[in-house]
Design a protein around this nucleic acid. Sequence first.
DNA 1: CTGTTAGCGCTTTCAA
DNA 2: TTGAAAGCGCTAACAG
Lengths: 340, 340
Amino acid sequence: MARRITISDVAKLAGVSHQTVSRVINNKPDVSPATRQRVLEVIKKTGYRPSGLARGLATSKTATIGMVVPDISNPFFSDIARGIETTAYERGYNVFLCNTNEEPERELEVLYSLEQKQVDGVILCGLRQKTPALLDALERFFAVVLVNRLLEEKTFPAVMIDNQTGAKEAVQHLLNLGRTNIGLLVGPAFSYSAKQRYQGYIEAMHNAGLPIQDGWIHNCIPTVEGGEQAARVLLEAHPEVNALFCYNDLVAVGAIQACHALQRKIPEDVAIIGFDDIYLAALVTPALTTCRVPLIEMGHHAMGLLLQQINEKHLGSRVITVTPQLIIRDSAPFAHELTP
Amino acid sequence: MARRITISDVAKLAGVSHQTVSRVINNKPDVSPATRQRVLEVIKKTGYRPSGLARGLATSKTATIGMVVPDISNPFFSDIARGIETTAYERGYNVFLCNTNEEPERELEVLYSLEQKQVDGVILCGLRQKTPALLDALERFFAVVLVNRLLEEKTFPAVMIDNQTGAKEAVQHLLNLGRTNIGLLVGPAFSYSAKQRYQGYIEAMHNAGLPIQDGWIHNCIPTVEGGEQAARVLLEAHPEVNALFCYNDLVAVGAIQACHALQRKIPEDVAIIGFDDIYLAALVTPALTTCRVPLIEMGHHAMGLLLQQINEKHLGSRVITVTPQLIIRDSAPFAHELTP
DNA sequence: CTGTTAGCGCTTTCAA
DNA sequence: TTGAAAGCGCTAACAG
C-alpha cells in the first residue's frame, strides 16, 4: 500500500496541469487528442483512480445511495436488494446496505450515518416507524424512495404491491375450489400490507355473498412459527374451516405444519395459499400456491425512481404499483385437480 | 433541501473557531466544558452533521468497507452479509454491498469502484476468479479479508469452513445408520469447497475400510435442479445406493425430489444429508439432516479480522476456521429411529 | 484552552 | 486548448 497516486502525479508525469487531467477523466471537450492520449497512457500506466471523496466534496454528488432494509437475510428483502443493486451498478452507483434489524431506533441511526456519508439518495424498504424525527431525517435527503410502505404525513415516490387485488384473487381461487369456510391468517396487527390483504379477503367474501366470521380471522407473527401456532389455534377452534389464506409464505408453511400435526390433509381437508412466492414456496410439500410478488423488479423500479429524482426530474409522489400473480401449485390446485 | 450546514456555520453561531467545533465533534480534550456545551447546543439546534467526505479527505479514513458477494439473494451469502453488517454497524462502519452476479468480470469492476470510494477495507465472499488483475486490485486495498476461499498466490486473512471435517462426520453418520453404499453429489468441479467435501467423503469411507466407487460420485450444479438431475441419474444407474451426501442443501432438496419421482422412500430406501443448513433445510419434507455452517458468525469473524487489520495490527494470513455441526433431522435420522 | 494556517484531491471559474 | 486560483468541509500541526 504505497501512497495513493493523485491527479497531480498524473499531471506531472504527463507534463500537463492537473486541470487537464481532470478534463480527460471527465470526458470534457477542449483537450487536444494528442494531450488526451498522453494523459490516458499515464493513467493506465500508473493505475490512477480518481478519489471519490475529493470528487464528492467538489461536486456534492457521490454516486452512492443508501438502502435500508429490516433484515437482509429475509428472502423478501434480499430479492429486492438484489434488484436495487443490479440497477444501481448498471447506472454507476454504489449501494450502502443498512440493516435495521427490525429495530425502529436503528432506522433513525442509519439515516444519520447515511446523511454523513452524503449519499445522493435513500431507498427505504418496509419502514417500521413514522415518528416526526424519522420524517425530519428523510427530509434532509435529496432523494427518497419508499418500498412497500406509504407515509400519510408526507408523500414520497414509492414502489408498492397491490396487496388487495392479490389477496382478492387468492381468496377467489379458494372459492372456485368450492371452499367457503376460508380462514385468514392475517399477519401482524400493525402491518400496512396486512391491512390491505385483509381488505382483499373481505372484498372477495362479500362478492361471493358470504358473511365474515371473526373467528376465522387470526393475527399472527409473520414467521413459520407464528403461522404454525395461529393455524393450530384457528383449526382447533373452527374445524369447519376448509381453506386458509395466509399473510405470507412463511406463515403458510407454518400452516402446513399445523395441518400435518392435526392430521388435516392438504388440499383435501384444508387448501392453503401464501403470499410472496419466495424461493421456499415451490420446495415445500405440498408445493405452495401463492401470490407471486415480483421482488427483483420492485428493486429495479425503486432504483429507477430514485435516479429520476437525482436527475432533477422531481416527480412528487409518483407511485409504481406492481400486481401479484397467482401461482397455482399443490396446496390449492386447480378445481379439476381436486378430487372431492 | 437547503444548503448543507457546515462546521463554519456552527462555529459562527457558537462564537468560536471551526477548529474548536472540530475538537468537540471528535471528543478531543482541551475544550472548556462551557465552550463544549455551547457548541453542542448549536449542533443540536442546527442538526449539523459533519461531512464524511471532508473528513475522509482529511484523514484518509472513511469508516466504510466493501463487501463483495456473488449473489445477495442466495441465503448462504445473505446470512454472511447480515453478520458482516451487524458487526460493522456496531463498530461505526458502513458497508457497500457489491453483487458480482456470479460474473467474474464484475469482481474486478466492483473492486475498482470500491477503490475509488476509498473504503477502509474489503471482504470478499466466495471469490470466483484469481487472475493477476484481481490480485493486483486486491493489493491496492489497505485491508482485505476472504471468506470461504483461499488464494494460493497470496495469503490474506480469511474465514473458512472446515469442509472436510463436516463432510467426514456427515458420511460417518450415514455409516452409523448401516449404509455403506453412499453416493456423493459433489457439486461443481471447479469449486474449492467441493474438493474439500470430497476429501471428507473419501476419508470417512477409507476409515470404514470401504472402497470408493466412481459410479457413486457425480458432479452437479449447486441448485435444486442440479441436484434433482444428478440424483436421478445416479440412482437409476446405481440402484444399490442407499444414501446420498450432497454438496449443499439445495442439491439435497433436489435429491429429495428425485427420490420422490423414483419412488424411493427417504430415509428408508435412501438417506440424505445436505450442507449449510439454510432456513429451507428444516422446512422441506422430510426435514433435512445437514451440516450446519454458522454463517452469521462467519460474517462477524470476517468483519472482526478486517477491523484488526484496519487498526494496524497487521495479522499476515490469519485464518479463522469454523466447524460445521451435524444437525440430525428426518432425512437421515438417528439409528434408533430408523426401523430397518 | 483556543485560534490560525495549511493542506487532503478534486472541480469550477476565470484568464490567458 | 490550456493553466492558475479558489474553494468544497474537514483535520493536523502549530502558535498563542
